[in-house]
């Protein structure tokens, strides 16, 4: 089952079994909902943004191991980061998932850490949307907080 080991890396299963930052944040933190209408996965991203920095982040909802692990890893990397860095990481991640091209504006030295483990998802195109659900919802949340 070597192929599946590529997809279900231990670090992914670890985040799936023990998700980080799972839960909710009370207002004034914002709450953004995302859904994958094809598979029924649903996610909520709670964001506490102040002075251009993601001070805190939580996620809730349900979905497959890939969507849950990806959201969990995402929270650990964006927490405490300036908004510009968060957007750059999100962009880098979407490039990793092959759904966004590198237009040269994203520094290639951005480190994704554990999230790189999700690279195996690319071989399973239908699962890419699972991996990016949390990220797209996060970006939507950032757009609504900054306007």
């Amino acid at each position: 089952m070597s192929n599946l080991e590529d997809l279900y890396r231990e670090v992914i299963l670890d985040h799936y079994r023990s998700p980080r930052n799972k839960g909710e944040l009370p207002p004034p933190a914002t709450c953004t909902e995302g859904a994958n209408p094809l598979c029924g996965d649903e996610i909520k991203i709670f964001l506490d943004v102040a002075d251009g920095v993601v001070r805190d982040v939580r996620f809730s909802g349900h979905g497959c191991s890939i969507s849950q692990a990806s959201a969990s890893m995402m929270t650990t990397i964006v927490k405490g980061k300036p908004l510009a860095d968060v957007r750059a990481v999100a962009k880098r991640f979407k490039q990793l998932m092959t759904i966004e091209e590198n237009d040269g504006t994203t520094p290639t030295d951005i480190r994704l850490g554990d999230i790189e483990a999700l690279q195996g998802v690319v071989k399973y195109p239908v699962r890419i949307k699972c991996a990016v659900l949390g990220w797209n919802t996060l970006l939507e949340g950032l757009d609504s907080t900054s306007t």
């Binding site: 089952m1 599946l4 598979c39 497959c64 191991s65 890939i66």
Partner: peptide, 28 residues
């Protein structure tokens, strides 16, 4: 285990099933 993960693993064994809401969300 989430149905998508079930079907992903089954796919590895060439066992083809459907995972999802089957276009019947009120029933789900």
């Amino acid at each position: 285990v989430h149905p998508h993960d079930v079907s992903q693993v089954l796919d590895q064994h060439n066992v083809y099933i459907r995972a999802g809401h089957h276009c019947a969300k009120p029933l789900m």
